[in-house]
Simulated assay, not measured.
Amino acid sequence: MAINLEKGQKINLQKSDGSSLQQVLLGVGWDVAKSKGFFGFGGGSDSIDLDASCILFDENKQVLDVVYFGQLRSKDGSIQHSGDNLTGEGEGDDEQIRVNLANLPVQVKSLVFTVSSFRGQTFEKVENAFCRLVDQSSNQEIAKYKLSSQGSHTALIIAKIYRHNGEWKMHAIGESTQGRTFQEIIPHVLPLI
């Protein structure tokens, strides 16, 4: 049974038997908000190009690597991105990032997941946004976090997976910010890690 995470909540990344998760998948999905035209007719809807990214930090908050639509694999191969979804159409995850926690280099202390609107459309045009964490070995959903905080922001700092006393934990951050790319979001991430 998946945990429905709330903003600020932290969980241990363990299986039901108490062993540590080794391989996780972070799935992100969204829909285009239905716009209402005159008397509810027209208005149409555009596609929304949201981009999921994973930023790897060391203990000194220095960026070690980034996985996003322009670099689909981390340099060490432990993290893989499913590729860019330009519309948000379809059911389920629109973009996925797979993480092999066991193979992450020891200097990686935290992974921060973000989603940003590449074309600068605000989240007022997005609905039903979510992220979910899945145990890849069993394909079981561990946690789900609703991101549908509509507003004039162009990015969300979704969550952080981090090492604490030799164990991996997840922190649902859920902070809205401005930025079309991960480079523009990093300054907003640093105070949160």
Score class of each variant (00 low, 15 high):
G18K: 02
G77E: 05
V66D: 03
S152K: 14
S82T: 03
F130Y: 11
I157K: 01
I157R: 01
P191Y: 06
I48P: 00
A33E: 04
E127L: 06
G174N: 07
T114I: 11
Q183P: 10
I158T: 02
R163A: 13
Q23A: 13
F113I: 12
M170K: 05
E175K: 14
K160H: 03
A33M: 11
G29H: 13
T87S: 12
G174C: 07
L25P: 00
D65Y: 02
V112T: 06
D46R: 12
R132H: 00
K10I: 15
A52G: 15
L190V: 14
T177A: 04
I185V: 06
K169F: 01
G43A: 04
Q9R: 10
T177S: 07
L86P: 10
K160G: 07
F130N: 06
V115N: 13
I55V: 07
K10M: 05
V134Y: 01
L111F: 05
S116N: 11
Q71F: 07
K7I: 15
V99I: 15
T122C: 04
K36V: 06
S117G: 03
V126F: 06
D17S: 07
E89L: 14
L64K: 10
L50D: 05
S74V: 07
F39M: 13
Q96P: 06
K109Q: 04
I55P: 01
Q96N: 15
L50E: 03
V126E: 02
G44I: 09
F123I: 00
H188S: 13
Q80W: 04
S149R: 14
C131T: 13
G8N: 12
E89C: 04
A2L: 09
Q150L: 00
G151L: 10
N139Y: 00
N60F: 04
D135Q: 05
S138M: 02
V189T: 11
T122E: 02
A155P: 01
G90M: 13
L64Y: 01
E95D: 12
E124G: 12
A2C: 05
A129F: 11
E167R: 01
I173H: 04
F123E: 09
A102G: 11
E184D: 10
I48V: 09
V189Y: 02
S152A: 07
D65T: 05
S117A: 12
P191F: 00
A129G: 14
T122N: 09
S148M: 07
W168A: 05
E124C: 11
S16Y: 04
E124Y: 10
G174A: 02
V67N: 00
E167D: 13
L72E: 07
D58S: 09
